[in-house]
């Protein structure tokens, strides 16, 4: 709060005070008050006026200066009240109390939404677990009747995969900490996903080449399984029927990280689409051509990777290959924990 602005604001009052001074002086002259007395009255008047302004200015200055500065500095503006001390003048108190009430109302409002969100998240999670029970029953039923058609199981697998997409979308969007990082074997996780998708590979006559996976990485295995499943589903989905279909899965490492590569010789991704494949709801040219893409798989995968502290990116050339790489950091901190 600056002195100049404050006085500018009080210009009207100041003008009124001066007018009243002039009138007092005129009265004094009319009553023939001695000149010395008039001088004394004017001085006293002006001194009182000045003192009054200064007093009220400095009283407010501290509070408002803090208010303005903190407002600028704060990242989350709604915490402003927490940074101010209760002012000792009337208008300040009104403002302070007002802010308090607004804040409280807003917190309650947001809390309400948070609760609704939590309820919704919880409901979705529960619902998905419930749906998985009949899904498991169906899988068993078809398995038990030996003459089942593999295609039925494939469709059940697809339902499961889409269900997982919703589950993990909800988890990454609303859950602060719904994961647990521990040591996991890369080979086991890859194996788990490959066995799950076995029928898809055999049905589509896709050759698999898996090597160099003898690494342990620190991650949440359930989340990683979901991510791998999404990537591999994509590879299967975007195969090139003209070629001998092939997927390579292998690991590598350098000083800082362990890398998992998943490479296919499918239709690839157009150059202009590559930077956007991890965006929400992005389907791109391939998604439109093959017409069954929600554009959520890679988006959710990337989000999950970010939360887990892994990096994920993709290299591709149209008509030639797509390679997704996940980097698991070798974190000394985790190693210490291990010991």
């Amino acid at each position: 709060m600056r002195m100049r602005d404050y006085f500018q604001d009080k210009l009207g009052l100041l003008f009124l005070a001066l007018v009243s001074l002039v009138m007092i002086l005129m009265l004094c002259l009319a009553f023939k008050v001695p000149l010395e007395a008039i001088w004394a009255i004017s001085c006293l008047y002006l001194f009182t006026l000045g003192a009054m302004f200064c007093l009220s200015f400095f009283k407010k200055k501290r509070f408002y200066t803090d208010f303005i500065q903190n407002m600028e500095r704060l990242d989350k503006k709604y915490y402003i009240l927490e940074t101010l001390s209760m002012p000792n003048f009337y208008e300040g108190k009104i403002l302070y109390d007002g802010l308090y009430v607004i804040n409280k109302a807003m917190i309650e409002h947001v809390k309400n939404y948070e609760l609704q969100m939590d309820d919704f998240k919880e409901y979705i999670e529960m619902w998905i677990h419930e749906v998985k029970i009949p899904l498991a029953t169906l899988t068993l039923m078809f398995h038990n009747r030996k003459e089942y058609d593999k295609k039925v199981l494939e469709q059940l697998r697809r339902i499961e995969s889409y269900l997982d997409q919703v589950l993990y979308y909800v988890r990454q969007e609303f859950a602060e900490k719904d994961y647990l990082i521990k040591k996991n074997s890369l080979e086991k996780m890859v194996n788990n996903v490959l066995v799950k998708n076995k029928d898809d590979f055999l049905e589509n006559q896709i050759e698999l080449e898996v090597r160099d996976l003898d690494f342990d990485v620190f991650t949440d295995s359930k989340w990683t399984l979901f991510i791998l499943n999404q990537i591999i589903n994509n590879s299967v989905k975007y195969m090139d029927d003209m070629k001998d279909k092939r997927i390579w899965i292998f690991g590598s490492e350098d000083e800082s990280s362990i890398y998992l590569h998943i490479r296919d010789n499918g239709i690839g991704i157009p150059l202009q689409d590559i930077p956007k494949v991890f965006e929400k709801s992005f389907t791109g040219e391939n998604g439109r051509k093959r017409s069954r893409s929600t554009g959520m798989g890679l988006y959710i995968s990337k989000k999950l990777c970010e939360k887990l502290g892994h990096k994920i990116w993709l290299e591709s050339r149209e008509q030639e290959y797509t390679e997704v790489i996940i980097a698991f950091a070798k974190n000394d901190y985790y190693q210490v924990l291990e010991r």
């Binding site: 998985k132 068993l140 398995h143 499961e160 994961y179 647990l180 521990k182 066995v195 359930k222």
Partner: peptide, 29 residues
Amino acid sequence: TSRASETDEVLSMSYGADDYVTKPYNPTI
């Protein structure tokens, strides 16, 4: 179980489960 979370799994294993399988599972597996 149909609850596929690492926390559930670790908890179960720490209580002394020998293995943890999530629904739906491959029957042969």
